[in-house]
Structure formats: structure tokens, C-alpha cells
Amino acid sequence: MAKLVLQGVRKRFGQNLVLDGIDLTVSQGEMVCLIGASGSGKSTLLRCINLLEPIDDGTIHLDGVDISEPGYDPQAVRTRIGIVFQSFNLFPHMTAAQNVMLAPRRVLGRRPEEMAGPVEALFDRFGLKHRMGHYPDQLSGGQQQRVAIIRALAMSPEIMLFDEITSALDPELVGEVLDVLRQLRAEGMTMVLATHEMGFARELADTVCFLDGGRILERAPPGTLFTQPREERTRAFLSRLL
């Protein structure tokens, strides 16, 4: 069954139509990559799915429930859909472990002592156990981004959204973050990524969507989209990257 269904989603910032009728279906365990030039609407689309931005038109269904209905409690959705941002957005006044434990404690009502074990296991899984007590400014960009991923995972989300999470990293740090995504992929996490890492999208995605001017212009498995793009604009975009 489809986990997440978007139909005719439109989003306007003032006069600027950023999303112009997005239809997208994501199945349980599927990994969807959104590619396209800056300003094509990838980030906005992810923020709309997470209800960080209200949509102007269309519907978003999560497990068959319309979560885009005005007045629907966004908090309940956000605990089920995690998002990781390009600029990490860790809380600078808290250690890595405190960053991770804040939301489970306040939103899910977990007690610190019952969380200690699972959180440590989570840090261990992504190779950051020795960094739990560090503050964000004591960590490298790649480590900060991995902490941000752990922070989102600590809420046990059903879907993870990743908004160009390697774009702000030095090239030599990109690999360690992509490894985390590979690991999540292997565990069967449902994921939607906005990304400029074409090689990565090609390697792991089930589906690649090419966004242009707020529309999904082309949607295909990576094998097809990267080798035989149907649309002229897709071809032009890909040729600029190579």
C-alpha cells in the first residue's frame, strides 16, 4: 500500500508559484530521490510533506489519512516523518546526546534513564559513540550531520526526508554521511531525498524524480532516467552535471 500520496500539491510564496501541481506516490520502504536545479522546488516539497509549510492546494495522504487538511495537528505528523536539513540545525547549546534526547523526552515522554541505552546504541551504530558529550561546534560538518540524522531517527519515524544533506559539507566528508543513508536503505527505511549526488541517486534510489519549475517533469527508475531521459529538459540538466 502507498505510504505517502501527494496529489496536485501547489505552494505559493507571494506571487511566486514554487510547487505547481505535484503528484507523487511513495511506497513503504521505497527510496525516492528528487533531483533538479536550485529553485526547482525540491526543498519546499520536503518542507510541505513535513507540514513545516502549509500547502495552498492539493492533498497529502499519510497511510490514507489526509494530513494536509487545514487544522490537522502538525505535531502528530512530524513525530512520524523525520527531516534532516542541509545546514544541520543542531541546537548549539546542547551536547550531541542532549540534541538527540530532547524530543523523545518532551514529545514522547521518555525518561532519560530508559533512553540512555537505545540512544547510545544509535550513536554507536553510526560510529559516533565517542562524540556523544561533544557540543556541535566541537564536531566536524560530517559528524554534525550524522548527529542530526540520529536526532531525527530517535523519534522512530516511519518516513525520513533528507534536504540536500551533503551540500554544505566539504567533499571529503560527504562519504561518511552517504554511508549512513546506505545503512538506512539496507534497513528498509522509507526515504525521500532532495540531492545533487547523482552517483548516489543512481546507486540506491528506487525512483528518481526530476523537478523543474515546481513540477515533476519526469519520474523513472534511475537506470532509465539517467541513461534514457525522456524529456529534453532532463537531458539538458543531466548533461550540465556531467
Partner: peptide
């Protein structure tokens, strides 16, 4: 945004 995305009130 980051706090909201984690479901914090």
C-alpha cells in the same frame, strides 16, 4: 524549524 520538525510544541 528544526524544533518543530521534531514535534516539539
Amino acid at each position: 524549524s528544526a524544533a518543530a520538525s521534531l514535534g516539539l510544541s
